[in-house]
Amino acid sequence: MGGESFNRMATHHKIRQFFFPSLTPKFLIRVSLVTISAYLFFGYLCIPFTIQGISMEPTYHHGGFNFCWRLRILFSEPRRFDVVAVRFAGSKVMLLKRVVALEDEQVEFRDGKLLIDGKEIEEPYIHYPCDWNLSPRRVEKDCVYVIGDNRGMPIENHHFGQTSKVRIMGTPLW
């Protein structure tokens, strides 16, 4: 009987300690470490973002949530068909686009078909009918050519083009 009561008191104490911990130096150090780690992780390595706009439909929807995983780009070059986050002056506002051409390749659109170096490229992620036409242009050194997946919108309303590799912040986590 006494043992049961002691166990109950110990459990209550543990619960209370969990929700209202004593401000011991050990606890404060632990909180500081967790805060600093979370700040570095979510501020520089795995940046949370919400998707605004329809340029990546239907792959990514307006209002969606994701993380920009920076290590993918820090240690390797962007590849064709990678979805990437392109920064402006910083990481607060970024563009989510798909890499379709790499440096020194020639990009062209003919009747909605993407042509790289004159060859038609199969794009399984495109689900909307497209009638885009874009004269051939070569991707400059240290740049990639990025476009959104929503080719159903008029070409003049779609924000796409060549961007410097240094502007690529990372890839979405999913």
């Binding site: 392109v86 990025v146 961007t163």
Partner: peptide, 11 residues
């Protein structure tokens, strides 16, 4: 004194 738009994506 100056405001310039930087071209991030070049069509």
């Amino acid at each position: 004194s100056t405001i310039e738009v930087v071209e991030v994506l070049k069509k």
